[in-house]
Design a protein around this nucleic acid. Structure first.
Lengths: 328, 328
DNA sequence: CTGAAAGCGCTAACAT
DNA sequence: ATGTTAGCGCTTTCAG
């Protein structure tokens, strides 16, 4: 089956193995006639290239690594990010190898890849540091604030969209918006909190923040939210950073005696199915995970083939989706 | 950096490269003294094995492929499945390569792997057929009803849990449960519909089924559900097959004038965050994606190292989580 | 217990 | 435009 080698193909086509190799890869040196002959021979023999042999010879692997924090498994965003990367890689005929936490280089088990995409890298994550230290080409999604500089960066100005969101809340008569922040220390969560604080400062509003760990159990989340609202009775709007939190907060807001979209506004910094399903539907920033993943992979391939210089940084625009939870 | 080869290590340790190789892999032939010497030399040189070279020599890749239907990107179940596989693979020091729809037979771009895990394979999917035809070891999650037989199978008796669920509904005084089925043609969805029909038949109840395409837009889903309920006024309970659908159905049931958990019962064949978050929380079958993925990967490794015979089929138990939506 | 030699399948240099 | 030669780094015979 997969056991025909390039010499078999070459023999069948009556050429040397070099010519067969060149023909199969379309290296212009071969004549059209032999190219076709070789292609036919390969097809009839069911030839498939031995990627390990090619890898050894060319010192490339034809695969890229993808590292996502373990949180992925609670978040639609990361999920669509993976999809974006995988999709782009498929187009470029690259494989995508998942890199898991606990699979770190300390373990000595480096994935066999040409480059790496890091989603929301956190400098305190040893896996991230290990991967940055491999010397492989690295593209991060969102900025990385460790000591090493990634070879490429795709980022979005989440803070700017949060500002727009807060302005809309204020425009809809919210006087005291609070924030349920995410405790991850990623650039994303940090810049959201910063923006919230500076926005409040500029308007003389007292910032009211509660951090909720990513992946908190829904029941606990509801308790936390209710308590938070009761402790801060002047709060009349809530912005939730982490994926899914806004939807889980709805019952708590109701228990607090408020009507969402009327005397209380609710919004999320990450859009997703649960925001659209929610009743009422929740206003959210569309963080475009699929596109982000796609852009990261594309940039990585450009870095690998040298068509884009090291240190390239690209911004990706987002979108704010207005829905009933803010009176839209 | 990664450029030290085994000859460098051998030279530094004052042995031949054969001995170095054996020492590094713990092949008992070397003495403890040389083993340590080689290990130290390797460490001091920062030696990392060239996986491509090993792959070429041993005709293995150290990676497994993971194919999940594209639907994954809407479903927490598939997500945790991926996690389970990746986690298990990391333990075994294997890489996991994602296989995307559209990546395969058309391009001839076979991923460089030793075996494949297929999640919910559908015989009509050309990628699935292509992967089954590669001759690589294949483990499927849920049965595969194509002509080829996978080398291993992990499955759960979803129908049995549905039966239990339906019995509980009947026990809670539901007289006419209906089903929102999934249109995928996987073994999973087929066996659920079959069980529902046979359960109804045995009790003289008229089965009422509506199929909703996987990944239907929430708004459309709500319209469909409302219409469905209005067309079938005797229905007093609803079982939703596809992931997330039950949560999205809640507003429609309310619009229909029913109170969930009281004069109308609701349940899901797939558990997840949205079922726990929902208000009221929704009774659901926990399909244990993480464990399923883990079991699949483990079985695949056992097949690859020959410790388990071809054709092994293992059943994985599930759990029914009773919640407020069925009066729990 | 260790070493020397052969070769996995491929591609890059260097010839024609 | 094609063929020849020489390895990529590793593991596996086969001899010591």
């Amino acid at each position: 089956m997969g056991s025909a080698t390039i010499v078999d193909v070459a023999r069948a086509a009556g050429v040397s193995k070099t010519t067969a190799s060149d023909a199969l890869r379309g290296h212009g040196r071969v004549s059209e006639a032999t190219r076709v002959a070789v292609a036919e021979a390969a097809a009839s023999l069911g030839y498939t290239i031995n990627r390990s042999a090619r890898s050894l010879r060319t010192a490339t692997t034809g695969a890229i690594g993808l590292y996502v924090p373990q949180v992925i498994f609670r978040s639609e965003y990361y999920l669509s990010f993976v999809y974006g990367v995988a999709n782009e890689a498929a187009k470029a005929e690259y494989d995508v190898t998942l890199i898991m936490s606990g699979q770190l280089p300390s373990h000595g088990h480096l994935p066999n890849v040409d480059g790496i995409v890091l989603c929301d890298p956190v400098a305190s994550d040893p896996v991230v540091r290990g991967l940055m230290a491999t010397g492989l080409a690295v593209v991060t999604c969102e900025r990385y604030n460790g000591d090493r500089v990634p070879n490429g960066v795709i980022w979005s100005d989440h803070a700017a969209y949060l500002e727009q969101l807060l302005d809309e809340l204020a425009g809809a008569d919210a006087r005291h918006p609070a924030m349920l922040a995410s405790t991850t220390v990623s650039d994303w969560s940090i810049s959201l909190v910063q923006k919230y604080r500076s926005w409040c400062l500029a308007r003389g509003i007292e910032p009211v923040i509660r951090e909720v760990p990513f992946g908190t159990d829904p029941a606990a989340l509801q308790d936390t939210t209710l308590q938070f609202l009761q402790e801060n009775p002047t709060v009349d709007a809530l912005v939730c950073a982490a994926d899914g939190v806004a939807a889980a907060a709805i019952p708590a807001i109701r228990l607090h005696g408020r009507t969402i979209g009327e005397d209380f506004l609710l919004a999320s910094c990450v859009d997703g199915t649960s925001m659209r399903i929610a009743d009422p539907a929740i206003t959210a920033i569309d963080t475009k995970g699929g596109e982000a993943g796609s852009e990261c992979a594309r940039l990585l391939f450009e870095l690998l083939d040298g068509s884009t210089p090291e240190g390239t940084v690209r911004e990706m625009p987002l979108e704010l989706n207005q829905r009933a939870s803010t009176g839209a």
